[in-house]
Amino acid sequence: MRKHWVLPQPAYAHYVCYPEMLGHYSDFPEHAERRSEGFLNSYNLHMVFDGEGYVFQGGERISMKRGSGFLFPPGAYQQYGSDPGQAWDVRWMHFATAIPLPMLEEADQSRGYFFTFDPGTGYDTLFEEMYRLSASYETRSEPRLSTLLYEILVTLMQNSEPLQGSVPLEIRHSIRLTADRIYSECERPWTLESMARLAGYSSYHFLRLFRSIMGKTPNRYLSDCRMARAKLLLASTGQSVADIALLCGFQQSSYFIKVFRQLEGMPPNQYRRSFNS
């Protein structure tokens, strides 16, 4: 199978990112490219969902199989291809963007970024919608195409690791599952030890991993989750501040009011009035 689309330049000139060319190849053993420096003036993203292949970087042949991918920046030398005996199932895209994402900056600096990703994170659904919109292109589809590209890039940022990454994907996945549990049950009397136990790590190891993956400490994340629930209840219900404090994991309403004021710059009742005026 060889699906391939080329999109016209968008009518609106201010999208933060936009696909120029995209495709889906499988059972296509001839898929191989060698592009000289300066030939391609857009980013080139390939994500391998099955099969075997390779990419060359600095004279080194790097294996690319299921759950591997590569991103070349504009103007970079590129050499890659599918294994004729085990052809790739690969989804790829050439795109333009000026978003300062760390992944893009790494590709710019090293002239090629190579990573692992979890194929089960929903990328195929996002790509399929892009393919459908591209196959029946209309100018009114441009905002959605830009949005889908942005979602793919950000999802990849959150759910991928460099090939030589220090945090394997299965660990990243377990930390995110723990974060989701903390969010949905933020009223529980969580401690660092209980959160670490849920994830299956020592407190020290969990703290380091959580900060690295989520960008904040577990206690700060818990506080953010509790504040989000509190603001929702204050804005959408008539429950008392004391009841809301308990529903958000605070045993004393006075402490809840103190924390709320520190984080939001106003007491809970004033926040509620701003939505009920």
Score class of each variant (00 low, 15 high):
156 L>G: 05
272 R>L: 07
207 L>Q: 13
119 P>M: 03
93 M>E: 07
239 Q>I: 06
240 S>D: 13
223 S>L: 08
172 R>F: 02
210 F>L: 04
276 N>P: 00
87 A>K: 06
11 A>M: 10
231 K>P: 01
140 R>M: 13
32 A>S: 13
242 A>K: 15
204 Y>V: 12
263 L>W: 10
261 R>W: 03
75 G>N: 02
247 L>Y: 06
255 Y>A: 09
80 Y>C: 02
253 S>V: 11
175 I>Y: 00
92 W>I: 02
239 Q>S: 05
262 Q>Y: 01
97 T>I: 00
9 Q>S: 12
196 A>E: 08
104 L>C: 02
47 M>H: 11
205 H>G: 13
61 R>G: 00
25 Y>G: 02
5 W>K: 06
107 A>M: 02
78 Q>M: 15
126 L>I: 02
102 P>T: 01
191 T>H: 13
181 R>G: 07
44 N>V: 10
105 E>C: 02
65 K>V: 09
156 L>A: 11
143 P>Q: 03
186 C>D: 00
232 L>H: 15
7 L>W: 04
40 L>Y: 01
199 A>F: 09
186 C>E: 11
103 M>Q: 03
155 T>Q: 02
149 L>S: 00
76 A>N: 11
106 E>Q: 02
192 L>K: 09
137 Y>K: 04
120 G>N: 14
100 P>N: 11
49 F>C: 08
126 L>W: 10
140 R>C: 10
268 P>S: 03
148 L>D: 00
92 W>Y: 08
43 Y>E: 07
221 Y>K: 04
214 M>P: 08
206 F>D: 06
173 H>F: 12
168 P>W: 06
59 G>Q: 09
244 I>E: 06
59 G>R: 10
199 A>L: 07
201 Y>I: 04
8 P>A: 04
9 Q>T: 12
50 D>H: 05
94 H>N: 13
221 Y>P: 11
119 P>T: 00
16 V>F: 12
249 G>Q: 06
168 P>R: 05
239 Q>A: 12
53 G>K: 09
93 M>C: 15
130 M>D: 11
248 C>D: 15
47 M>E: 14
52 E>A: 10
117 F>H: 12
180 D>H: 05
213 I>M: 04
187 E>G: 01
84 P>D: 01
256 F>H: 07
9 Q>C: 08
86 Q>C: 00
257 I>M: 09
258 K>H: 11
186 C>M: 06
66 R>L: 08
137 Y>P: 05
176 R>V: 04
117 F>Q: 07
120 G>E: 12
116 T>Y: 11
79 Q>R: 12
163 L>M: 15
83 D>A: 13
255 Y>D: 09
31 H>P: 02
170 E>C: 03
29 P>Y: 06
207 L>D: 14
127 F>V: 05
155 T>G: 14
161 E>D: 10
165 G>I: 06
92 W>C: 00
276 N>H: 10
248 C>S: 06
130 M>V: 11
209 L>P: 01
43 Y>C: 06
100 P>W: 15
19 P>V: 05
5 W>P: 03
227 M>G: 10
